[in-house]
Design a protein around this nucleic acid. Structure first.
Lengths: 231, 231
DNA sequence: CTATGATTCCATTATTACATGGAATATTGG
DNA sequence: CCAATATTCCATGTAATAATGGAATCATAG
């Protein structure tokens, strides 16, 4: 085998990682797995895939080394192989956002943003950064609200956050402390849940902000997380 | 268009970046472009591709926003769209190296490493880090040798480095200062040129080290580069 | 050791990606 | 305007990848 063939073989190995990330549904699966491990069934349902299809995509990701499996009784849990995979996913999104022309429009379309930012009040976007959040949590002036599905909250959440999945928000409004500012967060920069939660809270007359990204970025920045149910 | 369809559309956009990196030859092109801009013809030759094939791959990369073009007279120069693309490429390689089982073997195979490290002397690998290099350059005790093709040296090189492409090394040995340590570098962590240069220098009885990565990582770490011919 | 539930494997069909050679386009120099 | 050079476009055949439903496998509970 010549030098060129060896080089091609090596680069073909690198390409396995790219190929694995070269499919929208597989990226959705990675997005879900970045929140914590899940069973095939749960992943298929969350991503809107048939069971066999989801299984095949997960096999592809496993083949590329991006996910790992753990067996617990009758079911198999998939998880990201490591934090470097989440970092890679995040970088892919950020490169796509700055380089692929259509991303910005598709993003606005999905997140329900119209014009500049339909979710801003008097020009001020209703969001805050991780640093702001940490400062405010320290000062005890805000309630942090996790609006992801309970399963994902259990896997990992911002310490001290209250869990009310978006679906249950309207029926559990009473659980929110009445006189404190609410900061809602969800999976990450491209997750709709917190957008919709803030919209809904505004519609009830409450003031509420959105963390400008979510759990993915929180973990990538090395901040601590809690697991299990609320303290 | 429902929420799910919008989400799928957004993730399909992200996937464009993955798809673009999902082919060995395209990664080879990115690898070359990470050294500096090049014409289609030059890229095709360096990657061992037919002209139409190379052009098609470059179009694919352009479509994904990873490369940009500049026209100069009759020819068109391709370059990476930005440093974030080089960072993404580097991260793909590093994830592949730690996650894809075959990478390590294919790497050793391509770089000509046998067993632990055929290029080590008495167990000490013949390499140094960027930090070491900076320190030694400051102290003026070493000669930094760039063994990449002259075209790539011109595009960007470590300040003060001497350019002798690997191909010309045997005939230009005389240009190396006789009493100083040589540190050879090339494109990056998976480039053979510096390995072969160090091997050759050892075979002539000279002592020589290899920078443990290359230009790609040098630029990514934000260190300064010089362009054009030697000072 | 059988029934059940969860997941993967398999065969089929449809879609998409790849390589290649020759034609078309664009730029420079005469 | 014509010839030469560089690059892209296009049509073709071939290969790889995707979705899907049903069968097969595996682990637990009875």
């Amino acid at each position: 085998m010549g030098d060129r063939a060896k080089k091609a073989a090596l680069f073909e190995q690198f390409a396995k990682v790219g190929k694995a990330m070269g499919h929208g549904k597989r990226l959705e699966l990675i997005d879900l797995l970045a929140q914590g491990e899940r069973s095939v069934e749960s992943l298929a349902a969350a991503a809107g895939l048939g069971l066999s299809t989801a299984s095949a995509h997960l096999q592809a990701l496993k083949q590329a080394g991006l996910v790992a499996t753990r067996r617990d009784g009758a079911r198999i849990f998939y998880a990201l192989a490591g934090p470097d995979v989440a970092a890679l996913y995040s970088l892919v999104r950020s490169v796509a956002r700055s380089r692929v022309a259509d991303v910005e429009q598709k993003r606005a379309d999905y997140l329900g943003l119209t014009g500049n930012d339909a979710h801003s009040t008097a020009g001020q976007p209703a969001e805050m950064t991780r640093e702001d959040l940490l400062a405010q949590v320290g000062a005890g002036t805000v309630t942090v609200l996790d609006v992801r599905p309970a399963e994902e909250y259990r896997a990992a959440h911002i310490p001290g956050a209250l869990s009310i999945p978006l679906e249950e928000l309207s029926s559990r409004l009473g659980e929110l402390p009445p006189d404190r500012e609410i900061v809602a967060y969800c999976r990450g920069a491209y997750c709709v849940l917190a957008y919709e939660a803030v919209d809904f809270l505004h519609s009830t007359g409450r003031s509420a902000l959105r963390l400008n990204d979510g759990m993915l970025e929180w973990r990538l920045s090395g901040l601590p997380v809690d697991t299990g149910l609320a303290a």
